[in-house]
Design a protein around this nucleic acid. Structure first.
Lengths: 208, 208, 208, 208
DNA sequence: AATGAATGAGGGTTCATTCAT
DNA sequence: CATGAATGAACCCTCATTCAT
């Protein structure tokens, strides 16, 4: 999955800019392993020894890269949003019509949720409370930027009379609905991602 | 809020049947305090001492009522579903038309999420992972019953041509969307519960 | 040594008042063992496991009696001063003349330093820095009371023309000189405590 | 303060002889920083990272100059005594009468305690326990030489009938009294060093 | 039922020290 | 000489659980 990630043109640029940690560096491998474990067992039940073992180092070595366990969670979350933002802008680029843009965004978010950008995206909600207040504020800024992007497209849809519901509500509903897919939808299951996207659009009564 | 709860006709009956613990008993107060704390700080970060302190006993005494910490979570979740099931059946009873039943169900779930039945309902997803596999299966049975009820109403709506999306998908989408309201909607905020219900219906393109 | 301590009339009263921990209680044994170890190896090098092992419990059990390691040091120091204050008042009581009171005080402090009141007194200076600022202030209050008592007697000596040096300086000099005896004087060595007291008085040119 | 130190004629000689590390060398700066930190926070609480940061290098680099942390403490202490010895011999040189020699010694020791020879002198007692037994023996040899020097002058005073107390006791008392000044006397406070010397002499009933 | 002291395994974190670069 | 990632043992502390009272 990471290899697919690396093929995207924008990721190396992010890494070069220092926004995203190089996934092949020690820190990057630490982040990747942490994300996986946090998702599997939750932040509280994941020990730093677990993480270290996963990467093949000793627990003490973790603290050369992160000052404490919480900062790992913060990094996982921040990078997940940075990646999602980059992928989102990319996805929108080629699409002119609003229905297509809408579908592109939905698909993009689903990809983020189902692991195309590492495994961090679902953590944003599930492990949110384990972030310190300070960290929450930090991540919130990024999330707001991300959310605003979505709401902007919905607003255009509303203006064009394509949907009836307020963008504010629609975004909240959709975020919840898409996040929940993590609990029942599987990439290698009965339905494809495209079918899922279509059902979402159908629900929102959006013409194709 | 509990006082309002007690006025509902169906709760005393459930208590009398032994399905729900009497909220005024020691065990009931324990459950209520646990639910609140689990929601506030999460299961992992809530200590049995926290719970005991909230009720005014010492931590050791908790184990006269529950064999271990996890069983408290199990009880909180089970009772939350029992309550939700009872309230749901109640809510449907008087409604004949499908659109009205749909709205009744949505409203009922929102009430459960926003604390009308204690605070347990949101825990079902957020703290799910802290249940042992055995307990998960136990709760799953109840959840399935609850979910089937919802899907049943949606299936009728689909048969009547009121909605286009498959009931299976719609239920998953709606569950996610409604659960997410816990993170942004507040009962004493700018919008009423009725308005929220209406926006949900609007999104699903359901006629009134 | 503790048995001798218990014979003193004032100690049981202190214990009864809750000022001093009962040396036979779990907490009291913890304090006594801690004091010994802190003196032997220093606060920083003494582990809570060391202390627990000395008392015959497990390390975790310590935290039922003290919130953290530092609070043990605080308790050891506080109680040492309380004991010293009580013993000092007792020692002065029967002595009318200033030279005799002076000698009684010197002897009393030497007894405190050389273990007649537990082993805490020397820790006051040697492990002082390991107290949090907050705790330092707390202990400082007690120390000030203790110091004022000594200075008071010296001031009388000065008024009576028995000594030439200022009480302020004398007290500082004497405290240092007496504290230092911990490093070279031994109760079972070549000199008795009384001889030591006499040499101190001789140094200060105090008539007998 | 180090600049004043460097003006003294004997220091460069000691450096040239290899007895004292050149304070401008990397090792010298390391020692100086260590002494300061050891005094501020104690040996146990000072990390090698602290020391390294103070000098502007990384922690690993320290071990090119010292085999381990304890050897830094040993060096700090040894050099402090070498310096004190040299300064002491210097101070005595011009003084013929015993009272003047006595005062010169007292002043010299106070200067050592209050930072005229780096900050190492008070560490000799406060951090003594963190020296390995082997190192303690090594330092003890130097200390004995230093102590003998003092006792020698006191013995002459006793022979001349200037003091009554035994040199053995007097030296112990004085060492304690002077060391304690580190805790209450400040060079820029209400009293001058000369006044302090005078009060000490007064206490010992020594004629001027 | 409740207490509260004790358990004991395990948690996050620290830090002197090593060593390939 | 200096770096800095890694080590690994040890540290303080937490906490669900037990049990004699």
């Amino acid at each position: 999955m990471r290899s697919a990630l690396n093929e995207l043109p924008e990721i190396p640029a992010l890494v070069a800019d220092g926004v995203i940690t190089d996934p092949d560096s020690a820190k990057g491998r630490l982040l990747s392993a942490s994300a996986t474990l946090f998702k599997q067992k939750g932040f509280a039940r994941t020990t730093v020894r677990d993480i270290a073992a996963e990467v093949g180092i000793l627990s003490g070595s973790i603290f050369h890269h992160f000052p404490n366990k919480e900062s790992i969670l913060l990094a996982v979350m921040s990078e997940a949003i940075y990646l999602a933002l980059a992928r989102m802008r990319n996805a929108i680029e080629g699409e002119a019509s609003i229905p297509k843009r809408f579908r592109a965004l939905v698909r993009c978010e689903l990809e983020a949720i189902h692991g195309f950008t590492g495994v961090g995206f679902t953590l944003l909600s599930s492990e949110w409370r384990y972030l310190s207040e300070e960290s929450q504020k930090e991540v919130l800024k990024l999330r707001d930027e991300y959310e605003a992007f979505h709401r902007g497209v919905y607003a255009e849809a509303k203006e064009q009379g394509l949907i009836k519901v307020e963008p504010f509500f629609l975004r909240h509903f959709l975020r919840g609905a898409l996040a929940e897919t993590a609990n029942w939808f599987h990439l290698d299951g009965d339905y494809s991602l495209d079918e899922l996207v279509e059902q979402v659009s159908l629900t929102a009564a959006l013409p194709s």
